Amino acid sequence: MFKRLMMVALLVIAPLSAATAADQTNPYKLMDEAAQKTFDRLKNEQPQIRANPDYLRTIVDQELLPYVQVKYAGALVLGQYYKSATPAQREAYFAAFREYLKQAYGQALAMYHGQTYQIAPEQPLGDKTIVPIRVTIIDPNGRPPVRLDFQWRKNSQTGNWQAYDMIAEGVSMITTKQNEWGTLLRTKGIDGLTAQLKSISQQKITLEEKK
């Protein structure tokens, strides 16, 4: 169930391209415009997507990853294993993690069937560096609404905000991946996880038929 919630949630996290980005210092504006741009692209490019579902990787690479804190999220997933990894191991892992996100997020976007969304009203940021933004996803086919909290983090150097995690039903996506990959990290280390991520990233994206 959580895996499905995570995939549905990713439908609204794909941010804007650099040329049309919203105010990078306001995570609420980023979330709002990102959702609108993403849904528009999914709707307008269905012919290309249906002809070649792996085209979704391109959308992810162009529109999402430049505005997601990939390395920060990847380091959180590694936890204690990050500090013990060599620079070469980290570089290989982050490259594999990025390719994994292209496949995983692309597969999530393949679930698009006309969903709509509501974003919580903007709250004062103050001096906060981590801000959760509640998004409610509404399914046109009558499924119950899904309420999610996207975690946005302020870059201490640039002042810009980027998304790095999502919490559904009190469970963090980062925590879920830590639990899912924990045994592999304990037995085969970061190299074993890197190899698995490379394998997963090679899987073809498949479209979910409308139910």
Rank of each mutant, 00 (worst) to 15 (best):
residue 1 M to C: 00
residue 2 F to R: 09
residue 3 K to I: 00
residue 3 K to Y: 02
residue 3 K to R: 10
residue 4 R to Y: 15
residue 5 L to T: 08
residue 5 L to I: 15
residue 6 M to Q: 08
residue 6 M to A: 02
residue 6 M to D: 00
residue 7 M to E: 11
residue 7 M to T: 01
residue 8 V to L: 04
residue 8 V to E: 09
residue 9 A to M: 05
residue 10 L to C: 14
residue 10 L to H: 00
residue 11 L to H: 01
residue 11 L to V: 05
residue 12 V to I: 03
residue 13 I to F: 00
residue 13 I to C: 02
residue 14 A to P: 07
residue 15 P to F: 04
residue 17 S to D: 09
residue 18 A to K: 14
residue 18 A to M: 09
residue 18 A to V: 02
residue 19 A to M: 07
residue 19 A to N: 10
residue 20 T to H: 15
residue 21 A to S: 06
residue 21 A to M: 02
residue 23 D to R: 00
residue 23 D to Y: 09
residue 25 T to L: 10
residue 25 T to G: 05
residue 26 N to I: 00
residue 26 N to G: 04
residue 26 N to T: 08
residue 26 N to Q: 00
residue 27 P to T: 01
residue 29 K to V: 09
residue 29 K to F: 02
residue 30 L to V: 05
residue 32 D to E: 06
residue 34 A to M: 10
residue 34 A to D: 13
residue 35 A to G: 06
residue 36 Q to E: 05
residue 38 T to E: 12
residue 38 T to S: 04
residue 40 D to S: 11
residue 41 R to T: 12
residue 43 K to I: 11
residue 43 K to D: 00
residue 43 K to V: 11
residue 43 K to P: 13
residue 43 K to H: 01
residue 43 K to Y: 15
residue 44 N to Y: 13
residue 44 N to I: 14
residue 45 E to F: 10
residue 45 E to D: 12
residue 46 Q to F: 15
residue 46 Q to R: 08
residue 47 P to G: 05
residue 47 P to Y: 01
residue 50 R to A: 06
residue 51 A to E: 06
residue 51 A to P: 07
residue 51 A to W: 03
residue 52 N to K: 01
residue 52 N to S: 10
residue 52 N to L: 06
residue 54 D to Y: 10
residue 54 D to V: 00
residue 55 Y to K: 06
residue 55 Y to S: 09
residue 56 L to G: 04
residue 57 R to Q: 13
residue 58 T to E: 15
residue 59 I to E: 01
residue 59 I to T: 03
residue 60 V to W: 05
residue 60 V to Y: 12
residue 60 V to L: 06
residue 62 Q to D: 06
residue 63 E to W: 13
residue 63 E to D: 00
residue 63 E to A: 04
residue 64 L to Q: 03
residue 64 L to K: 15
residue 64 L to G: 10
residue 64 L to H: 03
residue 65 L to Y: 13
residue 65 L to N: 11
residue 67 Y to W: 03
residue 67 Y to V: 01
residue 69 Q to T: 08
residue 69 Q to C: 03
residue 70 V to E: 05
residue 70 V to P: 04
residue 71 K to T: 05
residue 71 K to G: 11
residue 72 Y to T: 07
residue 72 Y to M: 14
residue 73 A to L: 08
residue 74 G to N: 13
residue 75 A to C: 08
residue 76 L to N: 02
residue 76 L to S: 05
residue 77 V to L: 13
residue 77 V to M: 00
residue 77 V to R: 09
residue 77 V to H: 00
residue 78 L to V: 02
residue 79 G to E: 02
residue 80 Q to V: 09
residue 80 Q to I: 04
residue 80 Q to D: 13
residue 81 Y to W: 10
residue 81 Y to E: 01
residue 82 Y to I: 01
residue 83 K to R: 02
residue 83 K to T: 02
residue 84 S to V: 04
residue 85 A to W: 06
residue 86 T to E: 12
residue 86 T to V: 03
residue 88 A to E: 04
residue 88 A to T: 14
residue 88 A to L: 08
residue 89 Q to N: 08
residue 89 Q to E: 15
residue 90 R to I: 05
residue 91 E to T: 09
residue 92 A to P: 10
residue 93 Y to D: 02
residue 93 Y to V: 14
residue 97 F to R: 06
residue 97 F to D: 03
residue 97 F to Q: 00
residue 97 F to W: 01
residue 98 R to W: 09
residue 98 R to Q: 03
residue 98 R to D: 14
residue 98 R to N: 11
residue 99 E to M: 01
residue 100 Y to R: 07
residue 100 Y to Q: 00
residue 102 K to S: 13
residue 102 K to R: 05
residue 102 K to N: 15
residue 104 A to D: 11
residue 104 A to L: 12
residue 104 A to P: 06
residue 105 Y to M: 00
residue 105 Y to G: 02
residue 109 L to P: 05
residue 109 L to W: 11
residue 110 A to N: 05
residue 110 A to I: 12
residue 110 A to T: 03
residue 112 Y to Q: 05
residue 112 Y to N: 04
residue 113 H to A: 02
residue 113 H to I: 14
residue 114 G to C: 08
residue 114 G to P: 12
residue 115 Q to D: 13
residue 115 Q to I: 01
residue 117 Y to D: 09
residue 118 Q to Y: 02
residue 118 Q to F: 08
residue 118 Q to E: 03
residue 120 A to R: 07
residue 122 E to K: 08
residue 123 Q to R: 09
residue 124 P to I: 13
residue 126 G to P: 11
residue 127 D to N: 11
residue 127 D to F: 13
residue 128 K to E: 07
residue 130 I to A: 06
residue 131 V to L: 11
residue 132 P to N: 10
residue 132 P to T: 12
residue 132 P to S: 11
residue 133 I to W: 12
residue 133 I to R: 10
residue 133 I to A: 06
residue 134 R to I: 00
residue 136 T to K: 12
residue 136 T to R: 06
residue 136 T to S: 05
residue 137 I to P: 00
residue 138 I to E: 04
residue 138 I to H: 06
residue 138 I to D: 13
residue 138 I to V: 05
residue 138 I to T: 09
residue 139 D to N: 11
residue 139 D to H: 05
residue 139 D to P: 08
residue 140 P to I: 07
residue 141 N to T: 07
residue 142 G to Y: 05
residue 142 G to N: 11
residue 142 G to V: 08
residue 142 G to Q: 14
residue 144 P to K: 11
residue 145 P to Q: 09
residue 148 L to N: 07
residue 148 L to F: 07
residue 149 D to N: 08
residue 150 F to K: 14
residue 150 F to W: 12
residue 150 F to E: 14
residue 151 Q to G: 09
residue 151 Q to L: 02
residue 152 W to I: 00
residue 152 W to D: 01
residue 153 R to P: 10
residue 154 K to W: 10
residue 154 K to D: 12
residue 155 N to D: 08
residue 155 N to E: 12
residue 156 S to W: 11
residue 157 Q to R: 08
residue 157 Q to M: 13
residue 159 G to H: 03
residue 159 G to E: 13
residue 162 Q to F: 08
residue 163 A to C: 09
residue 163 A to M: 07
residue 164 Y to T: 11
residue 165 D to T: 11
residue 166 M to D: 11
residue 167 I to E: 03
residue 168 A to V: 05
residue 169 E to L: 09
residue 169 E to K: 14
residue 169 E to W: 08
residue 169 E to S: 10
residue 170 G to Y: 01
residue 171 V to F: 12
residue 172 S to A: 13
residue 172 S to V: 08
residue 173 M to Y: 08
residue 174 I to M: 12
residue 174 I to K: 09
residue 175 T to F: 15
residue 175 T to E: 14
residue 177 K to A: 05
residue 178 Q to A: 00
residue 178 Q to V: 08
residue 179 N to K: 14
residue 180 E to A: 10
residue 181 W to I: 02
residue 183 T to W: 10
residue 183 T to I: 03
residue 183 T to P: 10
residue 183 T to H: 14
residue 184 L to N: 06
residue 185 L to F: 02
residue 185 L to K: 10
residue 185 L to H: 07
residue 186 R to A: 12
residue 187 T to G: 09
residue 188 K to N: 13
residue 188 K to C: 06
residue 190 I to D: 02
residue 190 I to M: 02
residue 190 I to Q: 05
residue 191 D to S: 11
residue 192 G to H: 11
residue 192 G to L: 06
residue 193 L to T: 05
residue 193 L to K: 12
residue 194 T to F: 00
residue 195 A to Q: 13
residue 195 A to F: 03
residue 196 Q to K: 15
residue 197 L to N: 07
residue 198 K to I: 14
residue 198 K to W: 04
residue 198 K to P: 08
residue 199 S to E: 11
residue 199 S to D: 01
residue 200 I to F: 08
residue 202 Q to L: 06
residue 203 Q to A: 11
residue 205 I to Q: 14
residue 205 I to W: 06
residue 205 I to F: 14
residue 206 T to E: 04
residue 206 T to Q: 15
residue 206 T to D: 04
residue 206 T to N: 11
residue 208 E to F: 14
residue 208 E to I: 03
residue 209 E to D: 11
residue 209 E to A: 12
residue 210 K to I: 10
residue 210 K to Q: 01
residue 211 K to M: 14
